[in-house]
Computed example of a mutant assay.
Amino acid sequence: MTIKTKALLFDFDGTLVDTMEGFADIAGEVIHRFHPEISFDEARRKYLETSGVPFFQQLEIILPGNPTNSQKAAIFEETKKDGFFRSTFSDEVRYVITELRNRGFIVGVSSNNFQYLIEQFIAREGLQFDIVLGFQDGFEKGKQHFEYVIKHFNLQKDDLTFVGDSLKDAEKAVTNDIKFIGLCGTFTKDQFLHKYPGIVTIESLKELLSCVQLY
């Protein structure tokens, strides 16, 4: 299936950079430390199941209203920085992003990492994007990022496609009438299509080059 689009907005963790397994380990350890009744494996699984939103929001899904959620979130965010900056863009990611921009697509990043962290990472890596959006208070991946990109580049909703690796990413796109491509890995093709039957899935980023068309 070919998707006609003008702009591609990419999720970051798990889509452009392989950080999800390490983040899941940190989340599992932090949750288990505060809640010994929740095993490390269960906490880790819950983190992956709810991925796609900031960790403090994940905690409100996993442990709604728990008074230590803000403390757990602070520990997680501080601990993950080491692993975050040890990560790099793969050769495949560099090739695909560069090729998409060479073909005339607008290419951007939409991340729930804090804005300053995502800017530092991308500046260090030297890979060019047309726009880089991170988390700020009241401005996060999903509706706010989509609307900003559409306005900034004078697009229509149908001109934008979101590429992500989680069911939450798919939910954000579908509920905002944005086209979505699911990168399998964190979730399988069957898991994506079971919940969102109409979406396109890919097994690698290189597949994007044959399934998107500029119009």
Rank of each mutant, 00 (worst) to 15 (best):
V93D: 02
K46A: 05
L63G: 05
N102P: 00
Y116P: 00
D130Q: 04
G104R: 09
E37F: 04
G138T: 07
R101W: 02
L133V: 01
V132Y: 05
R103V: 06
R103C: 09
G126H: 01
P54F: 06
I31P: 06
I106K: 14
I97V: 15
I38E: 07
R101Q: 09
H145W: 01
V109P: 03
I118P: 09
S90F: 03
N66A: 15
T79R: 12
F114E: 11
S87N: 15
G28Y: 12
K80R: 15
T68C: 01
F89R: 03
R124E: 11
V109H: 08
S110C: 06
E49V: 01
F129I: 05
K80F: 11
F76V: 10
G52E: 02
F146M: 02
F121R: 03
G104A: 09
G142C: 02
T88M: 12
H145S: 03
E147W: 00
H32Q: 11
S51G: 07
P67N: 12
S90G: 04
L127Q: 04
L133R: 02
G134E: 01
Y95V: 03
I62F: 07
R94W: 05
E125Q: 13
N69A: 10
A43E: 09
H35L: 09
A74C: 00
D91S: 15
F146H: 01
H32P: 09
I131M: 04
Q71M: 06
I61V: 13
L117R: 08
E147L: 07
R124Y: 02
A73P: 04
T50M: 06
L133K: 07
G65E: 12
E92C: 07
